[in-house]
Design a protein around this nucleic acid. Structure first.
Lengths: 145, 145
DNA sequence: TATGCAAATGCAAATTATTTGCAATAAGCA
DNA sequence: TGCTTATTGCAAATAATTTGCATTTGCATA
């Protein structure tokens, strides 16, 4: 069996939103929770889902992904290759934005940046172990409210 | 006339790549160089282009955008709303990738990351003055599939 | 400046990714 | 268990982008 913990968590989120836990959803959620291939697109998920239950349909995959995304259970990444890829909203990590005038430190996190960093490192032939990203800026004078 | 400088720069890049400077391309490039609405999508560009030359076609817009992107003259952003948005690529700067085993420092630059950082800062109400991005990693053991 | 040829264009039709209408099915509460 | 309604599967519809092909046009050369 696969780690059913993550899968269960996703199901909980679904349930909490008032959605019904159907067999297709169970399968899809299990696939999303799998540790294997990260960032599968809808078709990837569909293909794997069909193996577990041959009557699951692509539209159902899309619909389930949409519900999960609205619930914040998963994240949709829009790559430039045209299709969307999904991944369970995972653990934390944050970077810093330093206010140059007050010294305030604001924490933020961008999955997009994390991902880009990985892509860049990969292109250079590296795996990132950790990184540091610090933005230094000043509060924007509001031009429009 | 509008700022023809930026526009000319894009044309130069096109020319340098061995492409022909056609009337449609002149129009499209001019639109891209306009300071107005940032991040137009193909249809936005097409609509504006038609106003300047009614026989420009959508496919030509797409083809021109592709050429410009391959030339690094513009950047394509894949937003999650399904369509791609474009914008002229800007100035220089680089970040660092540190090899944790050898201490080697590799310089790299990603307009995408720069832009994302700005977006993030903007969302937090800041303008970036400068930043530091360091990736720490180890050379990828060439393995898996 | 005139000429030829490959590159670029416009049009229509093709692809690709994703969404929707609708009748049939199945959660999950009473 | 039965009922109500969310969810499903299928087929067809959209939306964004790309491609085939005949025609036009940039531009290097004569």
């Amino acid at each position: 069996m696969t780690t059913s913990t993550d899968s269960d968590h996703l199901l909980d989120l679904l349930k909490a939103s008032g959605a019904r836990i159907t067999k297709p959803r169970r399968v899809i959620v299990r696939i999303l929770a799998e540790k294997g291939d990260q960032h599968p697109d809808a078709m990837d998920i569909f293909r794997r889902a069909v193996k577990e239950d041959s009557r699951i349909s692509l539209p159902t995959v899309y619909r389930t992904l949409k519900v999960l995304e609205e619930q914040g259970a998963i994240q949709r990444h829009a790559f430039s290759d045209g299709r969307s890829r999904y991944e369970p909203a995972a653990g934390e990590h944050h970077d810093h934005l330093i206010d140059m005038e007050t010294g305030d430190v604001i924490e933020f996190h961008s999955e997009k940046i994390e991902r880009l960093q990985e892509e860049i490192a990969a292109e250079l032939g590296y795996d990132i172990v950790h990184h540091r990203l610090e933005l230094y800026g000043r509060k924007r004078k509001k031009k429009q409210s």
